[in-house]
Amino acid sequence: MTDTTSFWASWELFRDAALAGTFAGAILGALGVYVLIRRMVFLSAALSQAASLGVAAAFWAQVQGAPPWLATPTLGALGGTLLATALAGIPVRSSRRDGLLGAIYLVGAAGTLAIGTKIVQELQDIESLLFGSGVAVLPEDFRIIAWLALVLGLVQVWLHRGLLHVSLDRDGARVQRLPVRFLDFVLVLSLATAVSVSTRLLGALPVFAFMVLPALAALDLAQNPQQALVLSALFGAASGLGGYWLAFAASLPVGAAQTLVAALLVAVVRVARVLGDRAQAWQAHRAHALLEHQAHEHGPDCGHESVTHGDHFDYLVDGHLHHPHDGHCDDHGAQ
C-alpha cells in the first residue's frame, strides 16, 4: 500500500487533526498577506511565541492546582497573544520597534522552554508547543478552529476592502476618512485569535510559517492584493493538509512538514514566476524583432550573411534563416 493510500485509509483517525491544520493554514495564510504588506513579519513571530508561552503557562497553572475551566490552554494562548499585542503597541521610536518585538519573541521562546519542561501531558509537551509535533486534536479544539475559520473567513469577505486599503495606503485611508482605528482593531483581533487558537493546536513554528510563506508565494503570483488573499488562503490550506500527509509519509514532525511544504510552494511559485517573466520577455523580444524584420528588406547590401539552404539562399538573422520571396519573408528555422 502506498503512503497516500494508507493515509486516506486511515483518514478517520487523522481527519480532525489534518482538517485543523488545513483551517489554520487557510486563516493564517490570508492574514499573512496583511502581515507582509504591513511589514510586520517579526510581530507575527513574536505573537506565535507569546501564544505558546500562554499555553505552557496554562498547563503549568493546572499542575499547580488552578481550576481547569480557568487555566485552559486556549485562554492561555489568547492571554499571551493579547499581552504581546499590547506590549507591541507601546509607542516607541521605529528604530527600537524591532528590539521590542525581539524581546517579546525571546521571552516567549525562553519562557515556553522553561515552563514546558515542567509539563508533560498526553497531548502537550514542549516539542508540540514550539515546533508542532502533535498529531491529534481534541474534538472541542477542532470545533473551535472550525468556527474560527468560518467567522474570520466571513470577516474577510466583509471587510477585506477596508483592511487592504488601510494596510496599503494608511495616509490615503485617513484622508478619505476611512475608519482606520476600527479596521486596525479588527485586524489585530483577527490575528490575535487566529494565532492563539492555532498555536495551541499546531505549535509556534507552523503558525509563524503559515503567516509568512503562503503570502510570500501568493504575492509573487497574484495580480492584485484581493487575489493574493484568496491564493494565500489556498496555499496555507494546502500546506496544512499537505504537511500532514508528508509527516505521515516520511515520519516527520507535523509542524516541520507543514513548514517545508509551505516553503516548497514558495520555491515552486518563484521558479514559475521567473520562467514566466523570461518567456514574456522573450515574446516581447520576438515581437520587436518581427516588427524590425517586417520593416527590413533583405538584399546583397542589407548587412545579413547570405547562406545556402537546400535549393535556395537565405539570410542569417540572430541564428535564424530568413527567406524573402514574393513580397514577404519566411523564417526557415534555426541554422
Binding site: 471587510l159 477596508g162 486599503h165 495606503d169 478619505q176 476618512r177 476611512l178 475608519p179
Partner: peptide
C-alpha cells in the same frame, strides 16, 4: 478603485 472609498462606506460589501 481605492480612490472611490469614503468613510464608513468601505464597510459596505
Amino acid at each position: 478603485r481605492m480612490g472611490v472609498e469614503r468613510g464608513w462606506r468601505v464597510l459596505d460589501p
